[in-house]
């Protein structure tokens, strides 16, 4: 009945189901500027997780009364495609999606100079095409490079990845099996150069020491993803456009 007891998620030598070590990211692909009708866009694959992000704006706020005199409004929509999960997900936004849209907005907002664009709105649309854990963090990582492509001035990029506890060990970047059968999942977003945390959540059970270990381990993953983000932005603006 309880799968977590029958599956060995991590071997004695610290090798995970998909062959990774505890401190290894899944294979990651990022690409900036994949859509023509947006101010900015990005596509990310992290393991089997696949996400497309579009940025629209800064543009005039609709309805007008939501506009703020002193800064732009950031709106984010995290949404999972009906075909992104094993069982079809209803396209109507779930409570989970409402919550994630909020925490993702609050993860990106500290990086943006929104005061440069008063009375406008910047929309970030995060569409999860295939979900295999880590979708909010991969969504943030991709959204931040899409915002950069849109030319919105930023203090730093925002980079996110989850750490978790699987088979009693603190590991980096859970996949779906680890998320489902593991003991804890802790997504974290940071502005890496400024060393500031912009998103922090935990589902599951961690001791104080594991919490500390997790925060340390996440920095390794964030550092690697940060350099991939910069690489993707450089590729976009050096003229070496790759196909979608």
């Amino acid at each position: 009945m309880c799968l977590s007891e029958s599956i060995v998620l991590i071997t004695q030598d610290g090798v995970r189901l998909d062959g990774r070590r505890i401190d290894e990211l899944r294979p990651v692909k990022m690409q900036v500027g994949v859509l023509k009708n947006c101010s900015g866009s990005a596509y990310i694959e992290q393991g089997k997780t696949k996400i497309l992000v579009a940025v629209q704006g800064p543009r005039e706020a609709h309805p007008k009364h939501i506009a703020l005199p002193g800064r732009a409004i950031l709106r984010t929509r995290y949404h999972m495609a009906p075909f992104s999960t094993d069982e079809r997900k209803s396209p109507a936004p779930s409570r989970r999606e409402v919550e994630l849209s909020k925490v993702i907005r609050e993860a990106l907002e500290p990086a943006l100079f929104l005061e440069e664009y008063p009375k406008t709105v910047i929309d970030v649309f995060i569409e999860v095409l295939q979900a295999d854990a880590g979708t909010r963090s991969a969504g943030i990582t991709a959204a931040s490079i899409a915002l950069a492509e849109a030319g919105i001035p930023m203090r730093d990029l925002v980079t996110a990845v989850a750490v978790g506890k699987v088979g009693g060990k603190v590991v980096l970047d859970l996949n779906e099996a680890e998320d489902e059968h593991g003991e804890a999942d802790m997504p974290i977003a940071m502005m890496p150069s400024l060393n500031k945390i912009t998103l922090l959540q935990l589902n599951g059970r961690l001791t104080r020491q594991e919490l500390e270990e997790g925060v340390n381990l996440v920095k390794k993953g964030i550092k690697e993803l940060y350099s991939l983000q910069k690489q993707a932005l450089r590729a976009r603006f050096s003229g070496a456009q790759v196909e979608v």
Partner: peptide, 21 residues
């Protein structure tokens, strides 16, 4: 037992790393 079973950061500010502990 000292186990932490859920965490949520809320709001558009930032945390320093030592804040977590």
């Amino acid at each position: 037992s000292g186990i932490v079973s859920s965490i949520q950061k809320s709001g558009s500010g930032t945390l320093e790393e030592p804040d977590v502990l």
